[in-house]
Amino acid sequence: MRSTGLGTGSTGTDLAALPLDQRLARLRQQMDAIPARAGSSARTPVPGHDILPIEGPLGALLPDHGLARGTMVTCPRGAVLCGLLAGATASGRHAAVLTDPTEPQIGLLAAWEMGAVLERLAVISTPDERAAEVAGVLADGVDVIVFDLPRAHIRPADFEKLRGRLRAKGAILVATRADWARQAHLDLRIQRRPTYGLGRGRGRVSKIDLDIDVLAGGRCVRRGRVVLRGHGGRTRWNHPDIAPLTLAHTG
């Protein structure tokens, strides 16, 4: 299990040299050392009333302009996922990505270009069979946990235990596979539209249009388009000329 980020005194090399049980113990120590979540164990989040806000056009498409604490969300890899990580860490929150070291990794450069604070973002490689346990430990001190393990299969009992821990701690789990997080609170479905700036295989991408459907309880509650534009080595989210369509409001 390799860890980077969070700045709590253990390097990825240190963790990799330890047996798994000792690595989990070290992660627990790191979670206790994060001040942003101090005292959070006594809180019972209520979806729609305890929200981690996501600023800007991307957040405007989400119910209550953010993610409800203590819930599970599905969002595929790509720009929107990086935007969620950027929004969370830029607002002072901590995030972690559970990943398989044999798979392509989420582009942290893209998240940084959107404003992510990488010092608040950990990347942890972990065995599939211990992923639920690791996520449960991270819930003690991390606000957003991205579960990017395409081959992980979690037993129903472990899944319900993890769900309960997320509720108790107020952490948000974002799964990159929609078929993994059963009964997710929100399901984000993204369709990439034309990309601008490339001409016959050359040039720099200047704009990407993305259509987003936000599903809750299996039905679409929000739908809209956002635009990702490059600007001075950074990227920013914009609304297109047409306003997003609001189908319903949850919470």
Score class of each variant (00 low, 15 high):
Cys82His: 15
Ala88Ile: 13
Leu109Thr: 09
Ala135Phe: 00
Leu118Cys: 11
Ile106Met: 08
Leu121Tyr: 06
Val123Thr: 05
Gly115Asp: 15
Ile106Val: 09
Ala96Asp: 09
Asp140Ser: 10
Pro156Lys: 01
Gly83Thr: 15
Ala110Val: 09
Cys82Ile: 11
Ala132Asn: 05
Asp143Gly: 01
Ala79Val: 12
Val144Ile: 13
Pro104Trp: 04
Ala132Ile: 03
Ala79Trp: 10
Asp143Asn: 02
Leu98Lys: 02
Glu113Ala: 13
Glu113Ile: 12
Glu113Pro: 01
Arg155Ile: 02
Arg120Trp: 00
Glu113Tyr: 03
Pro127Gly: 08
Leu108His: 04
Leu149Lys: 12
Leu81Met: 14
Ser91Gln: 12
Pro101Asp: 13
Gly92Ile: 06
Gly115Cys: 14
Leu108Met: 00
Val146Trp: 03
Val123Asp: 07
Arg130His: 11
Leu138Ser: 13
Asp140Pro: 10
Leu85Ala: 05
Met114Val: 00
Ile106Ser: 05
Arg130Glu: 15
His153Thr: 12
Val137Trp: 01
Val146Met: 09
Leu149Trp: 11
Gly141Met: 01
Ala88Leu: 09
Thr102Gly: 02
Arg130Ser: 14
Arg93His: 02
Pro104Cys: 03
Val144Tyr: 02
Val144Arg: 00
Met114Tyr: 08
Glu133Asp: 12
Glu129Cys: 07
Gly92Cys: 01
Ala96Ser: 15
Asp100Gly: 01
Arg120Tyr: 03
Leu85Pro: 10
Thr99Pro: 10
Pro156Gly: 03
Ala90Tyr: 02
Leu118Trp: 11
Ala135Ile: 08
Ala79Met: 14
Ala122Cys: 07
Glu119Ala: 02
Ala152Cys: 12
Ala88Tyr: 01
Glu129Trp: 12
Leu85Lys: 10
Ser125Ala: 14
Pro127Arg: 09
His153Tyr: 04
Ile154Pro: 02
Ala131His: 11
Ala90Val: 02
Leu108Glu: 04
Thr89Phe: 04
Gly141Thr: 07
Leu121Phe: 04
Gly141His: 01
Ala111Leu: 05
Gly87Ile: 08
Thr102Met: 08
Asp128Glu: 14
Gly141Asp: 12
Gly87Lys: 00
Asp143Ala: 10
Val123Ala: 03
Ala116Glu: 03
Gly107Glu: 05
Ala152Asp: 04
Ala122Val: 09
Leu109Glu: 11
Leu84Ala: 13
Cys82Gly: 15
Glu103Ile: 12
Leu84Lys: 15
Glu113Met: 15
Thr102Phe: 00
Ala96Phe: 11
Arg93Leu: 02
Pro150Cys: 01
Ala96Gln: 07
Asp140Thr: 06
Glu103Ala: 13
Thr89Pro: 00
Ala152Glu: 08
Ile145Asp: 01
Pro150Ser: 06
Ala122Met: 00
Asp148Phe: 04
Gly136Asn: 00
Thr89Ile: 11
Thr126Pro: 00
Leu118Met: 13
Gly115Thr: 15
Val117Gly: 04
Asp128Met: 07
Leu98Ala: 09
Pro156His: 04
Leu84Trp: 14
Met114Leu: 15
Ala96His: 09
Leu118His: 06
Val137Ala: 13
Arg130Ile: 13
Ala116Lys: 06
Arg130Leu: 13
Gly107His: 05
Ala95Ile: 02
